[in-house]
Design a protein around this nucleic acid. Sequence first.
DNA 1: TTTGGTTTGTTTGATGTTAAACTATTAGAT
DNA 2: ATCTAATAGTTTAACATCAAACAAACCAAA
Lengths: 148, 148
Amino acid sequence: MPTYYKGSQKEIDTLNTFIKMTRATESINNRLARHLADENLTVSQFGILEALLHIGPQNQKELGRKILKSGGNITLVIDNLEKRNFATRKTDPRDRRAVIIELTKKGKKFIEEFFPKHVEKIVDEYSVLTPEELKELGRLCKKVGIEG
Amino acid sequence: MPTYYKGSQKEIDTLNTFIKMTRATESINNRLARHLADENLTVSQFGILEALLHIGPQNQKELGRKILKSGGNITLVIDNLEKRNFATRKTDPRDRRAVIIELTKKGKKFIEEFFPKHVEKIVDEYSVLTPEELKELGRLCKKVGIEG
DNA sequence: TTTGGTTTGTTTGATGTTAAACTATTAGAT
DNA sequence: ATCTAATAGTTTAACATCAAACAAACCAAA
């Protein structure tokens, strides 16, 4: 995916990296999304189930921060998880504006079983990297992601 | 963004990198999308204008491959670019199934002026990396992106 | 040269996403 | 105590996206 832009060398190098990073992430996530779709899950639904499983009950604001989606969207995602009886809402007694989301028994069982299978797919995607490369990729992404 | 999953070390390392990579890419693209929105452009519209500018006229299938979007979606994106008089459709005389998309004068002028400003935003995003880190990030993303 | 399979693009229906306007609640300042 | 700000969540309207069904054109094989 070379760049044809005639800018400074720095600009060209940055663009090339940006394009490679975006394309790699999107193509990986497109493939993973298909795996999720087999279970009628969206990426956002999965992200929230995962956060609830591994971090515990939390309110919608926090969930939105975790999966980088808007508040309005979180409302819908939680609606859909509630419809499948995977999660429940309850008002936070300490702050009645907030709604705490919790996994149901059914939701917990589901995500506990499904998660390891999904991890396998992710590991497959990254299996071309050596362990050192994997670490370095993580470090660089973290460094650039903190920018704001 | 630590992982709380109790799997093998390899699984945990992979997950951590996956999460960092996904979050970094999404947060960068969210910020860039705001810059595009100032000009009433979506990420897909921008991607197509950019491809037309730097690679030249091409059909919808090729454009879809470039921006990793479905065929049906490309139809709509081109519709919208046509509405703004940024691009035109014309049937490929060599293959009457295909539609060749081309920039209009107005579209070319627009993207030529806008692109460098957008590049500046992208360079800003990556400015925390040294030149060597930038190259290495690109190499690793390319390596992992080819998988599939 | 016709048949069957493939490819390109469009349409349709369902769904995800966002921004913006809104409600209810909280917290802070005076 | 009482305004005022800010915050959490919901709703709405507009739009992007995808998969699937479809039409038109191509191509290869018999």
